Computed example of a mutant assay.
Amino acid sequence: MSNEPPPPGEPPENDPFRKQPPESTPPSDGPQQPPQGPPQDDPYGSGRSGSPYGSGQGGGSPYDGGGQPPPYDAGGSGGPYGGADPLAGMPPLADFGKRFLARVIDALIIFVPLILISLLAGGWDVTTDNGDDWDSFTNQVNTGRQWLWSLISLVAYVGYDTIMTARNGQSVGKRLMKIRVAMLNDGSVPDSSSSLLRAVVLWVPALVCCFCLWWIVIIITILADKPYKQGLHDKAGKTVVVSAAQ
């Protein structure tokens, strides 16, 4: 082994203690470019974080109604059409006089054909005996034939009201008076179940047990109800009667 020192000014290439560290490249003064590709929290590459099903407008769902309140406030603090006023956004409520005339027209439309058919078929005997007229009437009511005819009448009235209401919200009488039945929550035409329930509450008590008394109850509830002027049958079907005038 040689003991001679290395020549001055030129460090050997293999001397780790004499080597200089490599020079680092100075940073550029230009803008830094972001890394390419979608962010880590956006696996679908949509360019925004969060759910890939977001609407992109306020981060809400496209099915949440745009932040609008529900159309019907079950607590009664707002109207069925979304306004603070319970009648806001609704067509004008039908006048009671028009409702009454429409009901009379519809009742006659069913009553006249039924009474004519009944007379022709012997469903109701209008002849009198030598006895008391009231006793004769009571005896006829207690016969099975009269109960059957009462059932037919009930089906006719309830069926007419149900079919006409579910079709477009208007019976013949309501069409003539330019009023219609609508669902309270959104103003749409009542469906079959709502129309049937409404007709049953309206006609069954009247035709089965208490004709005059039940109509008085219906009239009072319409006049006294606030703010929608709903009779008991309207409350049962969750409906309201409004103007259909153009």
Rank of each mutant, 00 (worst) to 15 (best):
G159A: 00
A199D: 08
Q230A: 06
A84N: 11
E10N: 11
P11V: 01
S136F: 10
I218M: 14
I115P: 02
R198I: 06
S194A: 15
G82F: 08
K229T: 03
T162G: 03
R145Y: 12
L116R: 02
S188K: 09
G237H: 04
P80E: 03
G79P: 02
N130L: 13
D161Q: 15
M164W: 15
S24L: 15
A88T: 02
T25M: 10
S55P: 01
S24N: 15
V158Q: 06
V112Q: 09
P71I: 02
G159C: 06
F17S: 01
Q40C: 00
K98G: 01
G187I: 02
C210K: 09
V204E: 08
K238D: 14
A102S: 13
K238V: 00
G79Y: 13
A206H: 07
I220Y: 14
P70K: 11
P80L: 00
P227D: 06
D135M: 08
L213W: 13
S55E: 09
A244Q: 11
G169A: 02
Q36V: 09
G76Y: 11
P227S: 04
L223F: 01
D125I: 00
T162W: 10
E4M: 09
A245E: 15
A84G: 09
A245F: 12
P31D: 08
P27S: 01
A244F: 01
T239Y: 07
K174T: 03
R198G: 01
L207A: 05
L114S: 12
S49K: 11
C212H: 13
S61A: 04
P27M: 01
P62T: 05
I219D: 10
G78E: 15
N139D: 15
L213R: 00
L101E: 05
E23T: 06
H233L: 01
